[in-house]
Design a protein around this nucleic acid. Structure first.
Lengths: 339, 339
DNA sequence: TTGAAAGCGCTAACAG
DNA sequence: CTGTTAGCGCTTTCAA
């Protein structure tokens, strides 16, 4: 049925070793004549090698896996694009899965990837499989953690400076003259990103001369509707809030919805800065100021780092790359012109 | 180094055949006692099977591939989610790649997937590798075409009714009292979706009593900025246009941008309906009426169909599933209340 | 109820 | 310059 390297060898009247050599570019030692003959036969028989067999023999698949935790946020699409582009450039193929923020799923997928002998894994961790991450590290298995920091884990990380991102946002709001600045954040004790953004909010506020008592931190459940209701409730209780710093792009949309339902004007009555640049941010009314995270870069760098690690002769020290967020100023923060 | 089935067998004092049987659930014929012993050893040695070896032997990988053509549009994220969920449910893993709308990339990726022995492929085709698609079909290779129709190709398809989608939009606009209705579309002769949406526009307009001369079809190059400029130019030439039907979600954002630059009010001066429901549509100002395509469903159905095809004993006739679009009415079309 | 042996398609050490 | 040979880790017939 399917044509194998044996078929080619037989037809070309050589051994499969020779064919294999041609296939893999080791024809420094082969006659031009036999090479051409083999190439002809390959074309003629429409032969293509079985990479599964090759992988079994060579003990490497040239596949990496990526474990995402959320396929609903376009942010991840951009990360994925960076990873995919890098795989293409470096001759790897990509397996993808989605833990959906569930630790059990995450564990299962990681084990599956390993059984499939992927050469390494990029992972946005749920941060609830600490023993597993530690085991990967101590087994010296190639993997790179992205987006979220796993505390105490000695492994490659590619993250964005969330404290800095929050500070950019809060400083900008304060300098634009806003006194009462609130932060909205999803409730999730495991995830470093959100804690860090709140921390950045806190430090920037204090830095700007506010007292701890001035901090307005609103935690909401992740899930549809909850945020909009929370904003409405919050702003009714604290009608003098002048600015909101939103720590998530989806959350931002819900917050704006709540603000509009209250018939408040942005930015006149209340300013808002969102986290994560999106395709739609500039098209909102008013255009939304955002903290842009270099998502594509994160994808590229993590994949590159992983593949470098895979091909490293001797093991390296875990490296942490911290990417810089950037404030994209538009009208929603009320200071578009006067930064 | 790595523990294999042989190691387990040796340690448990049985043959690897027996271990293999346990692993694969064929222990109808095995003593409870030996089974437990083997299970213990497996746990003790932390053994996990090498799926590459298993795949080589069993001639199937339990992996499917998906070839996307664009990783920038969130629409595909939703499709991907459907595919991924289905893979999880059905015990498959997923490989992903992005042709980036380039036929050569598409061809290379498909061949790579085949060399990797993926059991089947879901593909959003560039529609410019006709010979390749035909060959896959005649080789009886399992694959499912999604989103775009490949003319003359006898293969499984999962598509959305684009003519219908356009008709929904245009009918709605006309019934809301708009006379001069224009359609905007990307220039790409290969892709059926866009041609069909224009066709739906045409048929709906004629159906509603307009003459062929009343049709206003504006083709624009796909690429940043081009659309916004095109809209501005177009509306300056035809200031009496009362409605625009946009055939793509990204395009819609650019069109709205152009309209706003001209200081026209939506929907008072000009109504707009966009294609594809998005997370941001309801948050635009005014909220955007869209033609919703069941993207998640497309992902689920195509993956299910593919896997069914993979496991079919005897070959089936190519099946085409046509999904129904749905109009989501919001304020931008100027008839939110009075449908 | 269990095991021996063959072999999936490929690579590479070694020999000629 | 080319071929022989021995596996990679697993499944599966066939025999015991």
């Amino acid at each position: 049925m399917k044509v194998t390297i044996d078929d080619v060898a037989r037809r070309a009247g050589v051994s499969k070793t020779t064919v294999s050599r041609i296939l893999n570019g080791n024809y420094g030692q082969t006659t031009e004549e036999t090479r051409n003959r083999i190439l002809d036969v390959i074309k003629e028989m429409d032969y293509s090698p079985n990479i599964v067999a090759k992988s079994l023999k060579s003990m490497r698949t040239n596949v990496i896996g990526i474990v995402l935790s959320n396929l609903k946020n376009p942010y991840w699409m951009t990360v994925l694009e960076g990873v995919e582009d890098t795989c293409r450039d470096l001759g790897y193929n990509l397996m993808i899965c989605n833990s959906d923020e569930q630790p059990e799923m995450e564990m299962q997928y990681i084990k599956e990837f390993q059984m499939r002998q992927v050469d390494g894994i990029v992972i946005n961790p749920t941060v609830r499989n600490m023993e597993l991450y530690a085991k990967l590290a101590s087994d010296n298995y190639p993997f790179v953690v992205i987006n979220r920091k796993v505390p105490g884990l000695s492994a490659h990380h590619v993250v964005v400076d969330n404290v800095k991102g929050a500070e950019l946002a809060v400083n900008h709001l304060v300098r634009a003259g806003r006194k009462k600045v609130a932060v909205f954040v999803y409730r999730n004790p495991h995830v470093s990103t959100w804690a860090e953004r709140v921390e950045g909010y806190r430090s920037a506020m204090l830095e700007n001369g506010f007292a701890p008592g001035d901090l307005l931190i609103c935690e909401v459940e992740q899930g549809t509707g909850a945020t909009t209701e929370a904003v409405i409730r919050f702003l009714r209780q604290q009608p003098d809030v002048e600015a909101i710093f939103s720590t998530n792009n989806m959350m931002t949309l819900d917050i704006i919805k709540g603000i509009k339902e209250l018939r408040l004007r942005i930015p006149d009555d209340i300013a808002i800065i969102g986290y994560d640049e999106t395709v739609w941010a500039q098209h909102l009314d008013p255009p939304l100021t955002t903290v842009m995270q270099p998502a594509y870069e994160m994808g590229r760098i993590s994949a590159k780092m992983l593949i470098k690690r895979i091909n490293a002769k001797r093991q390296q020290k875990p490296e942490t790359v911290v990417l810089e967020p950037q404030l994209i100023v538009r009208a929603s923060c009320g200071a578009a012109g006067r930064v």
